[in-house]
């Protein structure tokens, strides 16, 4: 119960909660009328965007004490995986869309 209490009395948490609600509706609105040819590139683009989780990996890595080898190893792995998600995601999306625009020109 005190968890719920905290949720509404702590301004920072409350602000985050508001962002969540607004973002949900925004996400729905923003891609509401996407043509079906763009489904896969859009999925891939969204895939790259959730790579933003890398920021969490960077924070956890940067805060790890330098003698905590478990945290350092896992954090290092997390940074690599997160970067793969971001970079790979954006590059693959770009390639898909490149193919798409070439087709259009022909």
């Amino acid at each position: 119960m005190d968890f719920l209490q905290n949720l509404f009395s702590d301004p920072a948490t409350y602000r985050l909660l508001t962002i969540v609600i607004l973002s949900i509706f925004l996400g729905i609105e923003v891609i509401g009328r996407v043509p079906s040819v763009l489904h896969t590139p859009l999925m891939s683009g969204a895939n790259a965007i959730h790579g933003v989780v890398i920021i969490g990996a960077i924070i956890v890595m940067g805060q790890a004490p330098s003698d905590d080898y478990l945290a350092l190893t896992l954090g290092f792995l997390a940074v690599i995986l997160g970067t793969l998600n971001v970079v790979g995601g954006f590059v693959v999306t770009d390639r898909m869309l490149e193919m798409f625009s070439k087709k259009k020109k022909k």
Binding site: V20, G27, I28, G32, V34, M43, V52, V53, I55
Partner: peptide, 23 residues
């Protein structure tokens, strides 16, 4: 984003979460 009080993780994640579901 909740864990680190980080707005960009939160918006990025939730946007993909809801847009992805609709998609």
């Amino acid at each position: 984003g909740f864990l680190y009080n980080n707005p960009v993780m939160l918006t990025g994640g939730i946007l993909v979460g809801s847009a992805g579901t609709i998609l």
